[in-house]
Structures are given as structure tokens and as C-alpha cells.
Design a protein around this nucleic acid. Structure first.
Length: 583
RNA sequence: GCCCUUGUAGCUCAAUGGACAGAGCACCAGCCUUCUAAGCUGUUGGUUGCAGGUUCGAAUCCUGUCAAGGGCGCCA
């Protein structure tokens, strides 16, 4: 926020260091712990530790340096005072200048506040990756939410982003579904809720496959016809796949997700087999057929021990596997878009597989192989460490969760805003419900498991999306009452209350929070920031009346509220959470 | 056997190597004639699994150890 002033300051610091032959590169800025005013601090310990002239223990020498600096430096514009405390040189912002800078910049950029213009070669993020003909459950949700929000954040940080979705549209699960459908549900069409209907039929097919006498054999026979490209089955496959896609689109619409490129497993299967031939010819792969599969013995080739293991890239019967398809898919992605980077949002259990095919690509000579990044996340469990599995029936269906959450949110909306139109009520309830569901999946670190339980998923209080949305609503409510901000720049010197100063600082952080979250691929940083921001706002809201304040104070506070509202809204949108105006 | 992840308040989680480790939930006590109480205030709660090491400084980095979860030749 004070780049110019800061660099003037740094020049002075550098000069000071040169005079005493101190290691100036050890200087860094951090913020002062909040005590009513904000500022920047330089810890002088590293300099002290490296100072050849040091006689005292490091902390004492650091304090001496801080004091010497305090006495020799000229306070730059924008700062109110300087102090040397416990080995730190602290510089406090002149609060009105700081507030003017922050609030002015937010109000000028509006919805763009915190964002950079996308530029450069594109980054692809592959996420969601559902299987067609299967139900969507809460376990799938974390992937979609994490991926979607990561895309938003990367985009805001100045990257061009391509959202990719890789659909599992072939394989045994599909054949099971088709076989069961043709035998027991021929001619039936899905109703309104397509994903659910598809999922129910999948569960039925899976049950039959596991327990019904003779069904497995029928499925195998069906699979053979599929392999032989039986036109009837191909047509049925295409039609039913479309139902699944329609269902997915419904869910994505609801969640606010969209994709720029859809890849199908079916589209990379043949290229994958061709690539296996190529790998055999080049000597990288060993062909053990007909008794053994085609493998790449990575440890042997690379010279590692039990690190990359052995990758099976084709079954002994010649049918394809996951790895068969991921190799050509990666090539396709880079060829198609000239990617800067290719990010895979895939759960942590597949870490080794990703390392393996990345290594194979490197051995094949693709220079971009090291541009493949795995955004690994832990799975969503049920209490008692129960893994969600449609096979085991241990799932919470997405549909059920959203429905129940919306119902509960609607109760609250109806009670609080009885005058609203029913459709508007529903809209708000949905925004709150989806936010409440998404937030816990975003606010945890990627590497931490999420345990789903209904009670906390439906809790709209405390550290949650509704809390943040509510802060946005409150800000909006104040602004709605005044119609618009008064003309002219307010006197920001009126913002002296600790909660005001704190809120200003919190708002100022959004751009750097976005950059960091993008760099580290951690939406949870932004989720935590959103909560802090909302908390700062509520703190301010409770301590500083706006509308009833005297005119000068009121004008300054209104500008602050407007900036807070924008900042909250922008942050929520980056998380893929709607920011309602009323709730 | 090899490898990865996690271990912080009763529970769920925060904390760019930096100032006294913070929130939420739960519990208890308060606050709605005042901009929406999905809110706020206060109380209680800690040997950051354990032991070493590096560092001026460690929840954070390194080594060891214990515990939980996961991965490792024809699932995706």
C-alpha cells in the first residue's frame, strides 16, 4: 500500500547498513502485532547476529541497532511515529493517510479490487472428474469446490486459467449400468433429477453384480459386445452418457462451476494404446503378454529403489488402465493449449500414480513433464473413519445434503424476512446452504481429512460461510439505507477507533492474500482470511454506529462500510460462495 | 519391508522461522425500543504426541521415536 514510502525507507536503511557494513539483504518487513494502530516492523535480529562488530548477545544488540536506526532515520510521509522495541524497529502508519489509500483504492477498483489482469501462457486445472452413470456424493464435493476455488484464485492472481474436467465415461461401471438398464429398465427415461436417477440405477446394478446369480456373467458378455463395438450398445452408451452429463451440468450450475474443456476417457483410450506400443518399441516398456501385463519398471530405469515402483500401463488382455490414458491425455493438454503449467486436483491416494506417469512423460522426452503439479487433498470421511463408497452404501448423497441444508436455511430466512417473495427466499436459502456446505471443505488445509457429519454441516453459526455472508448483508443493509455514498472524499482522520483501524488493515490485505493462496494453491488461506475480515467487520459494526454518527464521522464510516462490503463480496466469490444482499 | 500425510485447548481447526500460540463448537454468565441477535461481550480451557538437534529465536526446519490414516505389478 505504501510502496513509494517504503522504498524511501529502505534506501535509508540500506545506507545505515552500508555505513556499518551490515548484511542488508537480511532485512525484511512484517506487520506489528495489533494494539489499536497498524504499521510495519523490521526485526533486527538477523542483522545483529551477522554483525562482526557485535559485543552483546543478539537480542540486546538488535535492540541497540533498532534504537540507532530510530535516531538516524527520517520518518517518511505516511507514517506517524517510529519506535524501537525488543529488537524491532516499528513504524506506525499515519492512520488517515493509510485509510485514504486503502479505502480509496477499494472503492476505485470495485469488484476488481485485489485482482490482476490475466496474462501469459495458460494454466490448466483438471478437477471434478466424475464417473458417468454414477451418483455424486459429498466425497466428490471437496474436489469440485477445491478445484473451482483454486481456478478463481489463480485467475484473480493474474493467470489465464483453463478449467478442465476429465470424465470417466467408460469401464466396468458403465457396462454394469447399461446391462442392468437394458435388462430391467429398458425404455425408461430419467426424471427431473437426472444424477439421482442415474445413481439409483447404478446402485441397483452394483447390487445385482455383487449378489445376483448370473448377472456378472451377463455383464461380462455385455462387455465383450462393447469391445466389439456393437452399434446398439454404442448408441445406448452415448444416449445414457448424455443423461449423466445433463445431470452433472445441473449440479455444476447449482454449485456455480463451469468448464472450458471436457475430456473423456473414451477419447484417450485408443491414443493410449498406441502410446503403449511406442513405449514398447522404444524399450521403456516391457511387454509380458499374453500372460503378463505391459509394464514400465521405473525404479530400474531411473535407478531408484522402491520409489517409483513398477507401473502397469496395459492389462495382459490388452485392455486399458488408468495409466494408459493419463499419458496421452497429458500430451493432448499441452499440445492443445501450450500450457505454462498443468495442475491435477486429485485425492492424495493417487500421489504415486501421478508421480509415475509424470516420470514416464519425462523419460519420453517431454520437456514440460515437470510442469505437472498434483494438488493433493485428503478425502471426506464419515464419523468413525468410514470411507464414502457408493459400493458400500456409506455415502451422503450431494442431492440429499443440499436439499436438507436448503430446507433449514429457508426456515431461518422465512422467519427473519417474512416479507420477501418466496422465490427470493429460496434463492437466499440456497446461497446460505451451499456456502455452509462448501466452507468447511475450503477452510481446512488440503492435506487434512474432512469428517462429514450432519450436525456441523448444517450449522449456520460461528466460523462458517453464513457468518461471512451475514457480515456482507449487514454492510449492504447500512448502505441500502443511505442510498449512496455522499459526494466528495470524507475525512478519513475520523477513523480512529481500534476496530476501524483494524478493519482498514484487514481490507488492505486482500491482494497479498490472493497472491499467496495462488502461489501455494491453498484456498484455505483465503477462507481463513474471509472469516477474519468478517470478524473485523462485525467487531466494527458492534462498536461503531454508522447511520447515527455525526456527519463527518458518518461519511468516513460509510466509505469504510462500502469498502468492506466490496472486499467481503470479492473474497466470497473467490471461494465460490455467493454473497447475498439480504438474508 | 519401503514411502507419503497427520498429531496444537474436552471436540473441530488457525498461526509467511519472529513479539504473550489464536478462532469456532461445547459449557457457564450477560446483551435486542438503537444500522438484521445467522450477531456481540465476558469466564474456563495449552509441557504444540515424546526425546534430541540446528538457530539470536522453533508449533513451524533436521534426526530419532510413538500413535492414527493412506499408498506400493493387471482398481480408478
Amino acid at each position: 500500500m505504501f510502496e513509494q514510502e517504503k522504498s524511501l525507507l529502505e534506501n535509508q536503511l540500506l545506507k545505515f547498513c552500508q555505513e556499518r557494513s551490515l548484511a542488508a539483504d537480511k532485512l525484511e518487513w512484517r506487520s506489528i502485532p495489533f494494539s489499536g494502530e497498524w504499521g510495519i516492523a523490521a526485526p533486527l535480529f538477523p542483522l545483529a547476529a551477522a554483525d562482526p562488530a557485535r559485543q552483546l548477545p543478539v537480542p540486546l544488540h538488535a535492540q541497540a541497532l533498532a534504537e540507532a536506526l530510530r535516531d538516524s532515520i527520517q520518518l517518511p510521509a505516511g507514517f506517524s511515529r517510529m519506535e524501537a522495541v525488543r529488537g524491532y524497529l516499528n513504524l506506525y502508519y499515519e492512520t488517515s493517510a493509510y485509510a485514504r489509500k486503502v479505502i480509496g483504492s477499494v472503492l476505485a477498483s470495485g469488484n476488481e479490487y485485489g485482482r490482476q489482469q490475466p496474462a501469459g501462457k495458460p494454466v490448466m486445472v483438471e478437477y471434478s472428474n466424475p464417473n458417468t452413470h454414477k451418483p455424486l456424493h459429498v466425497g466428490h464435493l471437496r474436489n469440485v469446490i477445491l478445484g473451482g476455488s483454486t481456478c478463481n484464485i489463480l485467475e484473480a492472481s493474474g493467470k489465464r486459467v483453463i478449467r478442465a474436467n476429465y470424465l470417466g465415461d467408460i469401464g466396468l461401471h458403465v457396462i454394469k449400468w447399461l446391462c442392468n438398464y437394458e435388462k430391467y429398465h429398458a425404455g425408461e427415461k430419467p426424471g427431473q433429477d437426472k444424477t439421482r436417477w442415474m445413481g439409483d440405477l447404478f446402485a441397483e446394478a452394483d447390487r445385482r453384480f455383487a449378489s445376483q446369480e448370473g448377472f456378472e456373467a451377463e455383464v461380462r458378455a455385455y462387455f465383450a459386445r462393447w469391445d466389439a463395438r456393437d452399434p446398439h450398445i454404442l448408441a445406448l452408451w452415448k444416449e445414457t452418457r448424455e443423461w449423466s452429463l445433463d445431470g452433472f451440468r445441473q449440479v455444476y450450475d447449482l454449485l456455480g462451476e463451469h468448464f472450458d474443456r471436457i475430456y473423456f476417457e473414451s477419447e484417450v483410450e485408443e491414443p493410449g494404446k498406441a502410446m503403449v506400443d511406442q513405449l514398447i518399441k522404444s524399450g521403456l516398456a516391457e511387454d509380458g503378454r499374453p500372460d503378463l501385463p505391459v509394464v514400465v519398471n521405473l525404479d530400474q530405469i531411473v535407478g531408484t529403489k522402491e520409489e517409483y515402483r513398477v507401473v502397469i500401463i496395459l492389462r495382459s488382455d490388452g485392455t486399458s488402465l488408468y495409466a494408459t490414458k493419463d499419458i496421452p491425455l497429458a500430451v493432448l493438454k499441452f499440445n492443445e493449449f501450450g500450457l505454462e503449467e498443468s495442475i491435477y486436483v486429485v485425492d492424495v491416494r493417487q500421489t504415486l500414480h501421478i508421480q509415475q506417469f509424470r516420470k514416464i512423460l519425462a523419460l519420453m522426452g517431454y520437456p514440460w513433464a515437470n510442469k505437472i503439479h498434483h494438488l493433493a487433498y485428503e478425502i471426506v470421511n464419515l464419523p468413525g473413519n468410514v470411507t464414502m463408497s457408493s459400493r458400500e452404501g456409506t455415502v451422503v448423497l450431494l442431492d440429499d445434503l443440499i436439499r436438507e441444508a436448503t430446507r433449514r436455511a429457508l426456515d431461518v430466512v422465512r422467519e427473519k424476512n417474512p416479507e420477501l417473495e418466496p422465490t427470493r427466499m429460496h434463492e437466499i436459502a440456497e446461497a446460505v446452504a451451499l456456502g455452509a456446505i462448501k466452507y468447511p471443505m475450503l477452510s481446512r488445509e488440503n492435506t487434512k481429512m474432512v469428517t462429514f457429519d450432519w450436525e456441523s454441516a448444517l450449522d449456520f453459526n460461528g466460523q462458517s460461510a453464513p457468518y461471512i455472508q451475514y457480515a456482507h448483508v449487514r454492510a449492504n443493509s447500512i448502505l441500502r439505507k443511505v442510498g449512496g455514498l455522499p459526494d466528495g472524499e470524507p475525512d478519513y482522520g475520523k477513523l480512529t477507533h481500534a476496530s476501524e483501524v483494524n478493519l482498514v488493515e484487514c481490507i488492505s490485505r486482500l491482494p497479498e492474500e490472493i497472491q499467496r493462496a495462488a502461489k501455494e494453491l491453498k484456498p484455505n488461506l483465503l477462507a481463513n482470511y474471509a472469516y477474519e475480515l468478517a470478524k473485523s467487520f462485525n467487531d466494527f459494526y458492534n462498536q461503531c454506529p454508522v447511520l447515527g454518527a455525526e456527519p463527518d464521522v458518518r461519511a468516513a464510516r460509510l466509505a469504510l462500510v462500502a469498502a468492506a462490503r466490496l472486499c467481503l463480496g470479492n473474497t466470497l466469490r473467490l471461494l465460490g460462495i455467493r454473497a447475498p444482499e439480504v438474508m
